[in-house]
Structure formats: C-alpha cells, structure tokens
Amino acid sequence: MVREIEKEAGIPVVQIATIVPIMLTVGANRIVPGVAIPHPVGDPESGPEGDRKKRRELLQRAFKAMSTEIKEQTIFKD
C-alpha cells in the first residue's frame, strides 16, 4: 500500500510500523520504527503523558524522514 501511494502520487510517504523487516520487504522507502504492534505510535503503558511524548517524538522523526533526501530504503532510528 505504502509503495503504491508513493508511486501514484509522487510524494514522500513515511511509514511508521513496528516490524521493520516487513516494511523493507514491501518496499517502503522512508521507515520509522514504531513501538509495538498494538500501539505503533504510542506508549500507553507509560501513562498519558509518556504516551503523548512518545507519539510526538515519532511524528517529529516522520517529519525529518519526509524532509530528507534519500537514494534507497532508509530507516530513521533517531
């Protein structure tokens, strides 16, 4: 899905998900590793504040990913 959106629209698509190998396999170009399968962009176990903080951090990383020139599939770890 991620690959086809990027191909069709010609715009950067950042995928946030937990299982990085699957994203690499299906052809996502800009990859941000998520927290866990049931909550990829949050950390509910650390309470409401920790959860929101984690979400903000991951989104900031996504913004960085979409603003970065890349030549190949890239994992944005920080």
Partner: peptide, 11 residues
Amino acid sequence: PTLESTVLAGK
C-alpha cells in the same frame, strides 16, 4: 516452544 512477539526487539 517459542514465541511471536509484538515488538521487533522481541522477534
């Protein structure tokens, strides 16, 4: 017997 974790580090 082994598991299928929900996080990458677990896998």
